[in-house]
């Protein structure tokens, strides 16, 4: 029983991380029609920054680290969009290539700076003691992580659905040319959404650190999961990313625990059916 409970919580915490990663990926794809293959690298960068910061400064708070790293990675993402991607707006394939190249650059830079060994990220001291609930023992940090992801989902949802800025972003997703014709500066929204997505990915990398550690290849492990979440949930849909993340978090966690050799088959096989029978995903709209 303890196995199922623990794996269940592991599923939820991985799902929470996946949501933080894929919500930005999904928004960027929905608005810019751009598969941002740098997204996994932004996450990994966050984890490395956290490893360095938290190991160098004893007593540094992980939440403050997540905030600082989030802002830093957001700024990097915003610059990348402004200086590079913007020039390639008429060339979608070029954009994909550039985001892929950027992810390779980031991962090589991390390898050069921090070497090939995995670097653990310390769990915050006040969250190291396990929590006892209903006679079971839970790792406290994972519980808090799930709470964080849910809080982020609520904030993002309110931003998108309840503010004028959010409505402008959705208008750009619906019909970006028409959005421009009613005076919306869609290219500024592109930069904003790209920076926001990158920042959330970076912050997620920090928060995922104590569970995952920083290691070369973390980006390549996370990116396909985000891709699957977005395909399952529906491109550009925040509720889709939320539900998709927890489904994929569960499948992946139990898959690797029960049938470790088959984990990727269990993960990718259902995607073939999703793409074949419901290409718009669970919550997505059909894109014209």
């Amino acid at each position: 029983m303890q196995f199922w409970i623990i794996q269940g919580l592991n599923s939820l915490s991985l799902g929470g991380l996946l949501f933080l990663l894929s919500s930005g990926f999904s928004l960027i794809f929905g608005l810019m029609r751009l598969a941002n293959l740098t997204h996994g690298a932004f996450f990994m960068l966050g984890t490395y920054f956290a490893a360095v910061a938290l190991r160098s400064f004893e007593g540094l708070n992980i939440w403050i680290t997540a905030l600082g790293v989030g802002v830093t990675v957001a700024a990097m993402g915003g610059l990348f969009e402004r200086l590079v991607l913007r020039r390639l707006r008429a060339n979608p394939l070029g954009q994909v290539l550039v985001t892929l190249g950027m992810s390779f650059i980031i991962s090589d830079a991390c390898l050069m700076m921090w070497g090939g060994d995995s670097i653990p990220v310390p769990t915050p001291r006040n969250l190291q003691a396990p929590t006892r609930l209903f006679g079971f023992v839970f790792p406290t940090y994972r519980l808090v992580l799930v709470g964080c992801a849910i809080a982020a989902a609520v904030v993002l949802y309110l931003l998108l659905e309840r503010t004028r800025l959010g409505a402008m972003i959705r208008a750009g997703v619906d019909d970006s040319q028409m959005a421009r014709a009613v005076g919306i500066r869609v290219s500024n929204l592109f930069t904003m959404v790209f920076a926001l997505g990158a920042g959330i990915a970076g912050a997620a990398g920090v928060l995922g650190g104590p569970i995952l550690s920083a290691y070369p290849g973390l980006d390549a492990d996370m990116l396909p999961l985000a891709l699957i979440v977005v395909i399952l949930g529906g491109i550009g849909s925040l509720p889709g990313a939320f539900v998709g993340s927890f489904i994929i978090g569960t499948i992946y966690t139990f898959g690797t625990a029960l049938f470790p050799e088959l984990a990727y088959i269990i993960l990718f096989l259902p995607m073939i059916f999703v793409i074949a029978f419901r290409p718009q995903g669970l919550f997505g709209r059909v894109i014209a």
Partner: peptide, 17 residues
């Protein structure tokens, strides 16, 4: 070409200038 996933009110609000 109204914005289909915006409410009627939002369609107006985003265009306000």
């Amino acid at each position: 070409r109204v914005f289909p996933s915006l409410s009627v009110r939002e369609n107006l609000v985003v265009a306000e200038r």
